[in-house]
């Protein structure tokens, strides 16, 4: 039951937050929704889960529009920074309510995770620190067992240890019970090894939408004396370059022919590729 996102546009007054976004989500993969702050990631996820209404465009699940569609909305859970719980509710009662709404909610697992992270379930959600409020929402997401699980900047505010724990627990859960996960983040390096499919978004537009390996498969970094590098990259699709003294490094996209003497070739990691891509877009 894939989610089809067609031409979703969202305007806030004069600002266009999303610009004809078209995308398909499904297949029990981990998607990375990658982009800088303000790129439109949060807006897209909000629209996907009914918190906001698009200005234009449609979203369907199994062919049915998701608007006012409980069957569809109940299949996707969003873990975002916003606290949507009443002031007087504590973690325990939130878990209890979750069991009401989600028949697959695993209370035991949620309690176990709370203990693991050191989350006190008697505390009011509003009084939790930023880190623990995030942890609370992460635990909810990991326990509801919906076919779609969306994380919007899941590890912001988490200390290194908790971040590590979250990734491991998520992977363990994902390996055991496949579902479609979307991780929206600007922490590209951390997401790199987790995701199978990358969606890069910039200024409300989708730049790339492909399997993660494809992004860096035909991209490489070449470095050496500036003159030699320039000769080599002439006519090629250069994403970015930098110069230090006489040494130039260029990130190139495209097939790589034999390297002349004096130049060094190395693979490019996802974060560097992303930055290069953004720099190229900036230049346009």
């Amino acid at each position: 039951m894939p989610i089809e996102i067609k031409n979703i546009t969202k305007d806030f007054g004069d600002t266009r937050a999303l610009d004809h976004v078209t995308l398909t989500l499904g297949d029990n993969q981990i998607y990375g929704l990658l982009g800088n702050n303000g790129a439109g990631k949060t807006t897209l996820l909000s629209i996907l889960t009914g918190r906001q209404c698009p200005t234009e465009g449609t979203i369907t699940m199994d062919g049915e529009p998701i608007e006012n569609n409980d069957a569809a909305l109940g299949k996707a859970f969003l873990v975002a920074e916003q606290n949507m719980f009443p002031d007087d509710m504590n973690v325990k009662r939130a878990f209890k309510a979750a069991a009401l709404f989600y028949p697959q909610f695993d209370r035991e697992y949620a309690d176990k995770l709370a203990e693991k992270f050191g989350l006190k379930t008697k505390k009011k959600i509003k009084s939790l620190s930023t880190g623990y409020a995030s942890i609370f929402r992460l635990i909810l997401g990991l326990s509801v067992n919906t076919p779609y699980l969306f994380f919007d900047e899941p590890v912001l505010g988490l200390d290194a240890q908790h971040r590590d724990m979250f990734y491991r627990i998520l992977l363990e859960k994902y390996a055991e019970c496949p579902c479609t996960v979307v991780i929206s983040t600007h922490l590209i390096a951390e997401a790199a090894n987790l995701i199978e499919h990358a969606v890069i978004i910039r200024n409300g537009k989708i730049l790339k939408d492909c399997p993660r390996e494809e992004l860096t498969a035909d991209a490489y970094s070449v470095s050496g004396p500036a003159g030699l590098v320039d000769k080599f990259i002439a006519g090629k699709h250069v994403l970015s370059f930098n110069i230090l003294g006489g040494l130039k490094t260029a990130c190139v996209q495209g097939p790589c022919d034999t390297l002349p003497e004096g130049l060094e070739l190395s693979a490019i990691n996802l974060q560097d590729y992303f930055i290069s891509l953004m720099e190229e877009e900036d230049r346009k």
Binding site: R168, L171, E172, Y174, A175
Partner: peptide, 15 residues
């Protein structure tokens, strides 16, 4: 197992 690799090295199970 795939799960153990995935969790230990923080990589996608497909990898």
């Amino acid at each position: 197992s795939i799960t153990e690799y995935s969790v230990t090295y923080k990589i996608n199970p497909a990898t």
